[in-house]
Simulated scan of single mutants.
Amino acid sequence: MSETIVVLTEQPLLDADAANLTALHPDRDVDFHVVLPTRTGRSLLVELIDRLSLFELPERARQEQGARRPRPEQALASSLAVLQRAGVAATGEVAAEKPVDALVTAVQAHDAREAVVITAPHAVEDTFHTDWATRAQDKLGLPVLHLYSGSSFIGDS
C-alpha cells in the first residue's frame, strides 16, 4: 500500500521539484497530493523586502508583475503533469483557505505522515521562522520539509 506525501506549493512545480520529491523515498511506494492555494496571503511590504534582499531590481519586479501568472487551476494541472512525467501518482486540489490550513486539512484527510512545502526563498519569513513549513510543522507535529523551488536547497524550518 502506498503512502501519501502532501505537497504545498505557491507556484507550478518544475521538473527539478519533481526530481527532488521522487528522490525522498526511492525505496517506498509514495503518492503525492499537491495543494496549491488561490492566494498566498503575503503582504506587499514583505514581498518588497524579499525582492530587495534577493537583489532583484525594480525593473525585474515590474516585468514579473506584467507577466501573467497562471490561474491556480492551470498551475495545479501543470504540477500534476510534471509529477506524472516523473513516474509518480499524483492528485491535487486548489485551496481557497489559508495555505497552511489547507495543508493541515490535506494531511489529515490523506492520513499523511509527511509533508513538503515548496516555495521561492522568502527572506523575511525564513529569517523569522514564519514561513509555511515552520507554521505547518508547529500545527501538525509532523516532519515538514521546506524546499526552494527549482533547486535542491532546503529551507531552515
Score class of each variant (00 low, 15 high):
S2E: 06
S2L: 05
S2Q: 07
E3F: 07
E3V: 06
I5F: 07
L8F: 06
T9A: 04
Q11T: 10
L14A: 14
D31P: 02
D31R: 12
L36W: 01
L45K: 02
I49R: 00
D50T: 05
R51I: 00
L52S: 00
R60T: 09
A61K: 05
Q63G: 11
G66P: 07
G66E: 15
R69N: 10
S78W: 12
S79R: 11
S79M: 10
L83G: 10
R85H: 14
G87I: 07
V88Q: 14
A89N: 14
A90T: 14
V94N: 11
A95W: 08
E97K: 12
E97Y: 08
P99E: 12
A102I: 04
V104G: 00
T105S: 01
A106G: 01
V107T: 00
D111Q: 05
A112V: 03
A115V: 01
V117I: 03
P121T: 03
E125F: 03
D126P: 07
T127W: 05
T130A: 09
D131I: 12
A133E: 11
A133K: 13
A136M: 10
Q137P: 07
D138R: 15
K139H: 13
L140D: 13
P143M: 09
P143E: 13
V144T: 10
H146K: 11
H146I: 11
L147Q: 13
F153I: 11
F153K: 14
G155K: 12
D156L: 11
